[in-house]
Design a protein around this nucleic acid. Structure first.
Lengths: 113, 113
DNA sequence: ATCACGAGCAACCTCGCGGTTGCATTTCAC
DNA sequence: GTGAAATGCAACCGCGAGGTTGCTCGTGAT
């Protein structure tokens, strides 16, 4: 059973994650968190041209999509990636791809008939 | 050379693809094209609650992101997935993930020092 | 020849997203 | 304890995304 894997995000669930990754600034944040590890908001702001507030909002969006999470540390809050979520997305894309292969196969069979 | 693979979408390039997949209606279209193979606009419209025009617009967005492509066939236009693009996205996510692992490793080494 | 079907074109509307600025609050450093 | 640093909170704004409706146009069927 479970051709739909439990962890694999089902359609309605996956869209928000893609949407979260769909903004350039946000994708930049993800890339930076990924390459440099967890870091504070100011640090994330330094490498960009938008305001700190904008970055903060983006971080909340990423949190909503469960792509990132924050930990308070004194007066600064440290944000880090939640990479399990990326794995979910990959699994979803895998499903799509394999379905596509199947569909083409069926289509060809249908045409030849 | 080329630690960044040529086909792997670089940051600025990847965001639009994610954005294209980030809308529920659009993701539904992709899923349907993936599971049922190429099909016409009306057919894609039948399974949804929005207008044909809306679907058409979404299809153009997918085309812009090179996730789908259309072929005219008589009076109907048939749309199909362009799965290579999905592979690009997967590769991009792979990069992010591996970078993340590396970053954590470095971080741990730094703390222990 | 006529009619219906599938699609394209264009104008329009609404609302949420990405961004800003200004101020308050907490915490560290000295 | 005082000042500066890091963040949170709130109000505001422009614009483009997602949607609709109405009409036209080409093509296939009869």
């Amino acid at each position: 059973m479970a051709t739909k894997r439990s962890a694999a995000a089902n359609l309605a669930d996956a869209a928000p994650v893609f949407a979260a990754l769909g903004d350039p600034t946000r994708l930049r944040i993800v890339a930076q968190l990924s390459s440099q590890g967890p870091q504070s908001i100011v640090r994330l702001t330094e490498t960009t041209d938008v305001s700190r507030q904008a970055i903060t909002k983006h971080l909340y969006v990423l949190e909503e999509a469960r792509l990132a999470r924050s930990v308070r540390n004194g007066r600064e809050s440290i944000w880090e990636l939640q990479p399990e979520r990326l794995a979910d997305v990959q699994r979803y894309l895998d499903d799509i791809s394999s379905q596509w292969d199947g569909a083409l196969e069926r289509l060809r069979a249908l045409v030849e008939k």
